[in-house]
Amino acid sequence: MARVITITSGKGGVGKTTTTANLGTALAMRGSRVAVIDADIGLRNLDVVMGLENRIVYDLVDVVEGRARLRQALIKDKRLPELCLLPAAQTRDKDAVSPEHMIDLTNQLRNDFDFVLIDSPAGIEGGFRNAIAGADEVIIVTTPEVSAVRDADRIVGLVEAAEKGPPSLIVNRIKPRLVSRGEMLSVDDVLELLMITLVGIVPDDETIVTSTNRGEAAVYDQSSTAGKAFLNIARRLNGDEVPFLALQEQPGVIERLMGIFGRRRP
């Protein structure tokens, strides 16, 4: 029986799709059967991030409206045969899908997969409600910025109101150097504000840009610190206890100078 996990954020552009693609890939690399669903109807993106855009024949709305069977619409990953994508419709009306459809869809997938990951659209409207309808668990992605954290807090309230249990948190794009200078919210700050359980810390990493350009998940890239962080999250989802990546960088010259001058005030 699959665990159905929705990845959401409230604010757009914080890395939901990248997170879904990398966690799906990492879980499949570790031997799980994984289906990833792009629930952002009208703004299809998970396919290009995963490099599967040329293989789409049918999409989620085709399945919901009975033009295709679920099996026909699922696209197999290029490298991992146990990883499948159900793409979003690109051209159709987003009102074509209802929460009941999503519950039905996820239930159909439960028997054949170990994990079903749903990439939620941004916002708190219908698309978000569809995305969490079939979920057993919710992971909220945020970045250490005031707007993203504020929206994440709204989502926490909505997820709890929808009785999905307490969501867990991924803090994405943390910049250790800025945090150590006190110029960025730290992971501890974000946790203190949102008061939910941490499942991952992902450093800001330029290799995400290059891996996304190529349509390859960062978890394949041994040099990618973000990829390493996503692999760790996958292990935690599998129940392993994995310490969080230590993000303390060696302080640079300026930081050391500032330390000498007693920058830290009480």
Partner: peptide, 22 residues
């Protein structure tokens, strides 16, 4: 500015503002 302690560090400001607005 931060050497001479003229302004509170922006991370702290962000946290305080968020705590209030949340």
């Amino acid at each position: 500015d931060s050497i001479f302690g003229r302004r509170e560090r922006s991370g702290t400001v962000a946290k305080e503002r968020l705590a209030a607005v949340l």
